[in-house]
Amino acid sequence: MPPSPQGDERTSRTPLLEIVIPAFNEEERLPGGLLQLCAKLARMPFPTAVIVVDNNSTDFTAEIVSAWPQGAVPVRLIHCATPGKGAAVRAGLLATKASLVGFCDADMATGLDALDAAVGLLIAGEQVVIGSRAHACSDVENRHSTARELGAVGFRALARMIVRGVSDTQCGFKFFDGALVRQAVAGLRTPGFAFDVELLARCVGLGAAVLEIPVQWRDVPGSRFSLARHGVGILLELGSIWIRLRAESRAGAEPAWDPLLNPIGYP
């Protein structure tokens, strides 16, 4: 079936909002997540687009995105050869051109009703708007183990040493002024789970305030995070972020460039 006239008009215009989805072996969760997101974006009163970043998937993730029907919300596939969610998000954000950009997880664990609030706040002048499960008005359904919860408490304490005043750096629902985040993410050096901390710190370093908003969040089965497998690595990432940002601050220089995190050729 050919695209509707509305789809033709929307897709021919530059999107005001682009959303990045990092994806590693997401053939089971991605189709449902894309359906939800595209349905939500199609109801927005301005052009929107989605970028899915395939992060070395060995399943049919890339094929699903390549075959996705192009309607009112274009869905584009790019590839990121550097392993890690941080590397994939970085590649996706650098591929954006819209005035407003953001990223969310393939499982859509964060309810998309929060998207209206996030976009409205960005249009009103905010530069960084993030979902926060720690917000007093958030509705959170959590099935995590006690050990993982204790690990999260420790992580948040360490993250607050790097990004002060932010209660939840890790909710996978973050939206930004496009020009600001493209500048911030260019220097991102953390490829793994702790990348959000460095990204937010770099946004703050560019003069932006981080606004946390309430979300409805559901723990969706299929998360690949394991405290036993990733805990030490995350501690090392946080330490590296703290040392690197302090060194850059003292030097008063632009962040060093890491070509390993430039897998698709963006400057």
Results as ranks from 00 to 15, higher is better:
Met1Cys: 14
Pro3Lys: 10
Ser4Trp: 14
Glu9Trp: 12
Arg10Pro: 05
Arg13Asp: 15
Leu16Val: 12
Ile19Asp: 04
Ile21Met: 14
Ala23Ile: 07
Asn25Ile: 03
Glu26Lys: 12
Glu26Asp: 15
Arg29Met: 14
Arg29Pro: 12
Arg29Glu: 15
Leu30Thr: 04
Leu30Asp: 04
Pro31Cys: 04
Gly32Phe: 11
Gly32Ala: 11
Leu34Lys: 00
Leu35Asp: 15
Gln36His: 08
Leu37Phe: 11
Cys38Phe: 00
Lys40Thr: 14
Ala42Leu: 09
Met44Ile: 07
Pro47Lys: 01
Val53His: 06
Asp54Ala: 06
Asn55Gln: 06
Asn56Gln: 12
Asp59Trp: 07
Asp59Arg: 04
Phe60Ile: 00
Thr61Ala: 10
Glu63Lys: 02
Ile64Thr: 08
Val75Asn: 02
Ile78Ser: 03
Gly84Glu: 00
Gly86Cys: 01
Ala87Thr: 01
Ala91Asn: 03
Gly92Leu: 00
Gly92Tyr: 07
Leu93Gln: 02
Leu94Asn: 01
Ala95Asp: 15
Ala95Glu: 14
Ala95Tyr: 10
Lys97Gly: 14
Leu100His: 06
Asp105Val: 01
Ala106Glu: 12
Ala106Asp: 15
Ala109Gly: 12
Asp116Ser: 11
Gly120Glu: 07
Leu122His: 12
Leu122Cys: 09
Leu122Gln: 09
Ala124Arg: 14
Gly125His: 10
Val128Gln: 08
Val128Lys: 05
Gly131Glu: 08
Ser132Ile: 15
Arg133His: 05
His135Met: 12
Ala136Val: 15
Cys137Met: 13
Ser138Pro: 06
Ala147Pro: 06
Glu149Leu: 13
Leu150Trp: 12
Gly151Asp: 13
Ala152Val: 04
Val153Phe: 13
Gly154Ser: 13
Ala157Tyr: 07
Met161Asp: 01
Val163Trp: 11
Val163Gly: 07
Thr169Asp: 05
Gln170Arg: 05
Cys171Lys: 06
Phe175Val: 05
Asp177Arg: 10
Ala179Gly: 13
Ala179Trp: 02
Leu180Asn: 12
Ala184Ser: 11
Ala184Arg: 11
Gly187Val: 03
Leu188Pro: 05
Thr190Asp: 15
Pro191Glu: 07
Glu198Cys: 11
Leu200Thr: 05
Cys203Lys: 06
Cys203Ile: 04
Cys203Gln: 03
Gly205Thr: 08
Ala209Pro: 09
Ala209Thr: 14
Val210Leu: 12
Glu212Arg: 14
Ile213Gly: 09
Gly222Asp: 15
Gly222Thr: 08
Gly222Gln: 14
Arg224Gly: 06
Phe225Ile: 04
Phe225Pro: 05
Ala228Gly: 08
Ala228Ile: 11
Val232His: 11
Gly233His: 06
Leu238Glu: 01
Ile241Trp: 02
Ile243Met: 01
Leu245Phe: 04
Arg250Gly: 02
Ala256Trp: 01
Trp257Met: 06
Asp258Glu: 06
Pro259His: 08
Pro263Thr: 06
Gly265Trp: 11
